Amino acid sequence: MTEYKLVVVGAGGVGKSALTIQLIQNHFVDEYDPTIEDSYRKQVVIDGETCLLDILDTAGQEEYSAMRDQYMRTGEGFLCVFAINNTKSFEDIHHYREQIKRVKDSEDVPMVLVGNKCDLPSRTVDTKQAQDLARSYGIPFIETSAKTRQGVDDAFYTLVREIRKHKEKMSKDGKKKKKKSKTKCVIM
């Protein structure tokens, strides 16, 4: 069974824990209790493949930012979460993405942009803004509501699919490099 290491990042209060708990335990946590770091595991079937999701729910508070490099190193894919009623959390996505790329030393890291709290009427981040940002990053965008469960499975499952595509691409690139290195030079 394939294991996928997913990391949920975003500013404090955007609903990272609520999304994760909704996926794992099928219930909505409405009281806000700032996370330092929590880890969850769940076995699911995605596109006919049974897999184990190892999900790291991270601290959004700035005082825990020193811990970010460590979990970013171990993560295979990242859910970059903002709240649709919090423009600052949307603007912060850029910083999370840049930090992930720096730590992973790669421009090509599996990510999904997630606009959470889409059940709320007080939207300050337009869907088109988020779609445009995701398009500019070359990553999928999904709106979710941890409260109603809308888009929750889709967000995590899409990230797994992005990781699969990335692994497939990397193995193809690896095979191309191996083929090239088999060419021999004969000096007579």
Rank of each mutant, 00 (worst) to 15 (best):
T2R: 14
E3I: 06
E3G: 07
Y4Q: 13
K5G: 06
K5F: 01
L6T: 05
L6F: 11
L6W: 04
V9T: 05
V9C: 08
V9I: 13
V9A: 07
G10L: 01
G10R: 00
G10Q: 01
G10V: 00
A11K: 06
G12I: 05
G13H: 11
G13N: 13
G13D: 14
V14E: 13
V14S: 12
V14G: 12
V14T: 13
G15M: 00
K16N: 05
S17T: 07
A18C: 09
L19C: 14
L19T: 15
T20Y: 01
T20R: 01
Q22W: 10
Q22N: 14
L23F: 12
L23A: 15
L23M: 14
L23N: 15
L23I: 09
I24K: 15
Q25M: 11
Q25Y: 06
Q25T: 13
N26E: 12
H27K: 12
H27T: 13
F28R: 03
V29K: 03
E31K: 05
E31C: 07
Y32V: 06
Y32Q: 05
Y32W: 11
Y32M: 13
D33L: 04
D33A: 05
D33W: 04
P34A: 10
P34L: 04
T35E: 01
I36D: 01
I36N: 05
E37A: 03
E37L: 03
E37C: 03
E37H: 05
D38L: 00
D38F: 00
Y40I: 02
Y40V: 02
R41D: 03
Q43Y: 06
Q43E: 13
V44E: 14
V44A: 12
I46Y: 10
I46R: 10
I46N: 11
D47C: 05
D47Y: 05
G48L: 04
G48Y: 06
E49T: 11
T50E: 12
T50D: 11
C51W: 13
C51F: 13
C51K: 08
L52D: 15
L52A: 14
L52I: 15
L52Y: 14
L53T: 10
D54P: 05
I55Y: 03
I55C: 09
I55M: 11
I55R: 01
L56V: 15
L56W: 14
L56T: 14
L56G: 15
T58G: 06
T58D: 04
T58P: 02
G60R: 04
Q61V: 12
E62N: 10
E62M: 09
E62V: 08
E63D: 14
E63H: 09
E63A: 06
E63N: 11
Y64C: 14
Y64T: 15
